[in-house]
Design a binder for these strands. Structure first.
Length: 290
DNA sequence: CACTTGACCTGTCCGC
DNA sequence: TGCGGACAGGTCAAGT
């Protein structure tokens, strides 16, 4: 998502905004007028699952898509539309639709006619867009507590093991999902990485050996890299900035494959509930008692 | 404290 | 076909 937006947005100027649901965009109209309208996009960053669109007004648009959020750009001139609208790779048709919560009107820095609109769609209304002074972004509660980036160049197996070990009695899946331990791992990548490392999701962290934790570190990073390469995981709602689905789930080994044979041993993949989340495992490859 | 559950929302699917 | 309930990629607050 960040990469797509980073190709489309820098240099564009925000000339208007529409929003209906207050929780989707809680800022006041005064802030919008002072720090959003007329501002130009400098760049698009990401930390954990949060997107940051940096503006030249010293403010940033801070965005969390949660479960069903989408951020889709549509150029006013159809020639800039990159194939959005193809039924095979697009989940979104005409916009706005009934899930649209916020619309940003954008003008191109060079020629105003070449602008477009950025749609924030969110069926379940859990996600949000907030306008925050760029210098204060690192101080918001979430960023104060969130753990390191699993793909960070300076993130080592030793760091990973040390952070997991802060919750020795919890089950390993709950700890992987805890954003204060490691940033950015959600339900899909937790299940996939535990399967790859042959660890049962209910295993207490203290019962997982260091060798297995190190294997989990490498498998998690491999899976995240693969998913980025495949454009992410479109289970139901996720699309990229051009409205296209990601294809990672066609490579997933266990997620949403309950009832199907395990690709490693052909045992039937099962689905249970761990840490309050649907959890997919191979009962043969992932044994609880080591 | 650490850990679990409920809440936030809408839409879809499944069983009766 | 209608209806109730469970469930869905995430995070917080409130409960135990």
């Amino acid at each position: 998502m960040r990469r797509g937006l980073a190709r489309l947005l820098p240099g564009k100027k925000i000339v208007g905004v529409w929003h209906d649901w207050p929780k989707s965009f809680p800022n006041s109209e005064a802030d919008v007028k002072a720090f959003l309208i007329g501002a130009q996009v400098l760049g698009v960053k990401r930390r954990a699952k949060v997107l940051l669109i940096e503006l030249d007004s010293k403010y940033s648009l801070v965005i969390h898509l949660k479960m069903t959020g989408q951020l889709v750009y549509r150029a006013n001139d159809d020639s800039e539309r990159f194939g959005a609208g193809h039924p095979s790779d697009s989940l979104v048709g005409e916009l706005p639709d009934k899930s649209t919560r916020v619309i940003f009107d954008l003008a191109d820095g060079e020629s105003a006619a070449k602008g477009g609109r950025l749609f924030f769609n969110d069926q379940r209304k859990f996600g949000w867009v907030r306008l925050i002074p760029t210098l204060e972004v690192p101080n918001i509660d979430f960023f104060q507590k969130v753990g390191p980036e699993p793909l960070g160049a300076d993130f080592t197996p030793k760091d990973f093991i040390g952070r997991l070990n802060k919750r020795p009695k919890s089950n390993i899946k709950a700890v992987l999902l805890d954003q204060t331990i490691i940033a950015g791992v959600g339900n899909i990548y937790a299940d996939e990485s535990l399967f790859a490392a042959k660890i049962h999701p209910l295993t207490p962290v203290s019962d997982v050996g260091d060798r297995q934790k190190e294997l989990l570190f490498h498998e998690l990073r491999r899976i995240l890299e693969l998913s980025i390469q495949k454009g992410g995981s479109s289970d139901r709602n996720y699309v990229d900035a051009e409205g296209k689905k990601g294809s990672y789930l066609t490579f997933a080994q266990v997620f949403r494959r309950d009832g199907q044979p395990c690709p490693r041993c052909a045992a039937t993949i099962s689905k249970t509930r761990v840490a309050g989340r649907g959890t997919h495992t191979c009962p043969n490859c992932q044994k609880l008692t080591e």
